[in-house]
Simulated assay, not measured.
Amino acid sequence: MSNTTKSPEEAFAEGMAGTVVPDVSSKQDKTRSLAQDALRDLIRRPMFIASGVLIIAILIIAAFPTLFTSVDPLACDLKHSMEGPSGSAWFGYNFQGCDVYSQTIYGTRNSIIVGVLTTIFSLIIGGLVGVLGGFFGKWTDALLSFVTNVFFGLPLLLAAIVILNNFRDEKGMRNAGVMAVVLTLTVVGWMSMARVMRGAVMQVKQADYVAAARSLGASTSRMMFRHVLPNSITPLIVVATISLGAVIGAEATLSFLGIGIRPPAISWGVMISEAQGRISQGLHPLLFPSGMLTITVLAFIMLGDAVRDAFDPKLR
Rank of each mutant, 00 (worst) to 15 (best):
W90T: 09
I161M: 10
F121K: 09
G127E: 01
L34W: 12
A159Y: 02
C98F: 05
F167A: 07
A62L: 04
T118H: 06
L39D: 07
A62H: 03
L59E: 06
T148D: 05
A35M: 12
V116T: 03
F151P: 01
I55N: 04
R44N: 11
D77N: 15
A62Y: 01
P73C: 08
L132E: 08
V131Q: 07
I60M: 09
R168N: 12
Q103L: 04
I61D: 00
W90F: 13
E170L: 13
N110S: 14
S51K: 02
G126E: 01
I113H: 06
R32Q: 15
L154G: 02
K30S: 14
G127V: 02
P73E: 07
L39K: 11
T69P: 00
F135C: 00
G87L: 14
G84Q: 07
D37M: 14
G107V: 06
S86R: 06
L67E: 03
L158I: 09
A63K: 02
A35E: 11
F135N: 00
I125Y: 04
L34Y: 13
L78M: 13
A75K: 13
F152T: 08
A38R: 03
W139H: 13
F64N: 04
R168V: 11
L157F: 09
N149H: 15
K79D: 12
A75Y: 09
L117W: 08
I113T: 10
V53M: 10
G127M: 02
L132Y: 09
I56G: 05
A160S: 14
A160Q: 05
L39A: 13
W90S: 09
L128P: 04
C98N: 02
L164C: 00
L42N: 01
L67P: 02
Q36G: 09
W139N: 13
R44Q: 12
G107N: 02
L154C: 03
A62N: 02
A57N: 00
S88Y: 13
G84F: 06
V162H: 03
P73W: 06
F121V: 15
V150A: 13
